[in-house]
């Protein structure tokens, strides 16, 4: 059976994730409802505005459905930027409700406003060549819990972390078109 990767398509750069998945021959599906989610074997939470996605997730019951399938071990997740905020156990200022699927603490807009956004090449554990990453009004991961391993750091602070069935990054490779983290996720 071919794997289908669902991409949460409530708001944000879901189309860019779908483009990267298609570039590495992975079938994908836009997820806007609980019904869409039943057709996905894995799930990507894209970049966007975490306040918007959180509101739409919790209003619709889709948030609960994601949590249920993830906790049964049925739904591996890759979360980027706003997505990483949504999966985190807690947000530093408590400004967004989260799914709490990964034992990390995040801090929103930690680098500052848009004029402090940047692109860089990151060295990532398990990936041979540097990963082309874009940090857009990006969050910090300020605490990493037990059982969570760090795959990449930037400026001595973790930017890509992994636990059982879940990867979360504070940056975007879907806008640079670098498929290496997506490959790591779908193997």
């Amino acid at each position: 059976m071919t794997m289908t990767v669902g991409v949460l398509a409530l708001q944000g750069d879901f189309a860019e994730h779908i483009r990267v998945l298609s570039s590495i021959g992975v079938r994908s599906l836009e997820v806007r409802s609980v019904e869409d989610l039943t057709k996905a074997d894995r799930l990507i939470l894209p970049g966007g505005e975490s306040t918007v996605m959180a509101k739409l997730l919790f209003q619709s019951g889709l948030g609960q459905a994601i949590s249920d399938r993830f906790s049964r071990g049925e739904l591996p997740i890759y979360a980027t930027c706003a997505g990483a905020i949504l999966v985190s156990r807690e947000v530093q200022d408590g400004s967004v409700s989260t799914l709490g699927l990964l034992d990390i603490t995040t801090q929103r807009n930690a680098y500052g406003r848009q004029s402090h956004s940047f692109r860089t090449a990151l060295s990532v554990r398990g990936i041979q060549t540097p990963v082309q990453a874009s940090f857009i009004r990006a969050p910090h991961i300020t605490r990493v819990g037990e059982g969570v391993s760090v795959l990449a750091n930037y400026d001595e602070s973790p930017v890509l972390v992994q636990a059982r069935n879940i990867i979360a990054g504070t940056f975007h490779t879907e806008v640079t078109g670098d498929p290496s983290v997506h490959k790591l996720f779908v193997v």
Partner: peptide, 18 residues
């Protein structure tokens, strides 16, 4: 050029929104 690229990246994050 870099700030325009980063601006395009931010615009991508706004997509589907109001």
């Amino acid at each position: 050029d870099e700030s325009v690229t980063l601006g395009k990246d931010l615009a991508a994050m706004l997509k589907g929104g109001v």
